[in-house]
Design a protein around this nucleic acid. Sequence first.
RNA 1: GGAGAAAUGGCAGAGUGGUCGAAUGCGGCAGUCUUGAAAACUGUUGAGGGUCACACCUCCGGGGGUUCGAAUCCCUCUUUCUCCGCCA
Length: 423
Amino acid sequence: MLQVPFIRENKALVIERLAKRNIDATQMINNVINFDEERRRLQTELDNTLAESNTLSKEIGNLYKSGEVEKANLLKEKTSQLKEASKELAEALSSKTEALNELLYKIPNVPHDSVPRGNSEADNEEIFKEGDIPKLYGGALPHWELAKKYDIIDFELGNKITGAGFPVYKGKGARLQRALIAYFLDKNTAAGYTEYQLPLMVNEASALGTGQLPDKEGQMYHVTEDNLYLIPTAEVPGTNIFRDVVLSESELPVSITGYTPCFRREAGSYGAHVRGLNRLHQFDKVEIIRVEHPSKSYKALERMVDHVKDILKELKLPYRILRLCGADVTFASALTYDFEVFSTAQDRWLEVSSVSNFETFQANRLKLRFKNSEGKNELAHTLNGSSLALPRVLAGILENYQTEEGILVPEVLQSYTGFKIIN
RNA sequence: GGAGAAAUGGCAGAGUGGUCGAAUGCGGCAGUCUUGAAAACUGUUGAGGGUCACACCUCCGGGGGUUCGAAUCCCUCUUUCUCCGCCA
């Protein structure tokens, strides 16, 4: 969530930048400022009442000691009045604070200066493109047909065991998945990321910390018996490592990577564009997460982009990079680059990675701070990116590497798979 | 799942109704000394709110209660440890 002092001091800028998201935030921002003023007024009033009450309590103690019981009893009456007053004030204060927070939860992050204004994903800005789109043979198939032909992914079996969106990978298909995970993790750790294995379920506090709650509750699988949520991305457990943490400046930057399955309800999604591996309820992803000094976070974002580029280049997949427009940039992000691989047989681009700088938006909710050179606690910047999400990379490989003899395995993966062709 | 014990600042660990935001040690930071470092010595060092800055307020696992007054007493929840049971 945004920081109130920042909103107070940069009101015009905040409204102007939020307009990139096609929202007129004037009313919301005015409310934030008003609520906050009211909140501070109540706080001061409550503090004064408590101060008075504290002083009187000390006096009463002294009076008892010196045996002046009557005087003490007189003061007691006054403290009970103050107590009632403070109780009312405390209630008013907490309801005002809650109202303010609820409001703040609903305001998305302020987009970075470079984010283009836009109405839909059509306004995303293509900033880079690389790799040749292969010319496929006449009988080229989309990946869900290939999966069936070579018996490497069984969607129907997943239907039987669980339901739609929970595919079963078999034989060389399963091995290829494992190869991709190992390859991604190796690339990430070679780039300095520390590998983590994280819990696949998180508690409510963690889901709140990274912003899945309260607004995206319906997107997560919820284990009601124990009030735990299945993670929609490793970002949730990974970033919550740093909830309520004060780092020393020398510990920055922190960079971690982790492989996890991801679970998403994807309520309301259906149709041809979600066929096969294009959209799943359970999928695998290797994530990279960074905690950065605010002055260095945008450099770090560029480095993350370069890192993902390097991987796609090694896999020899045709891809492009989009700078997301205001309409498409996610709620918590200030600047997001999406990577899309061209799926030749489907003749469309598939998102395989999303790399974002959240600036202090997540850190504020998480209370993730570092002790700066002046010895003061300051919110850190958080960033994350997929490096990479498996299913669509797999779809891209299957479709782009298909030949009449079978599906070739990208060279960099061959040492991981132990085979060169799926046939 | 059953029985018992515990939860205090970055860590360890005192504190059982007012003099406690909290001893002491370690760690961190600054300084003295040193060519530099280490050691030693001196000082400093929790977080949040609030203020131009002070003042002031809140926080001793979470929530509630008793009391003029709670880290300290009571209730409750959570977590950890020990023992037993079960178990990959």
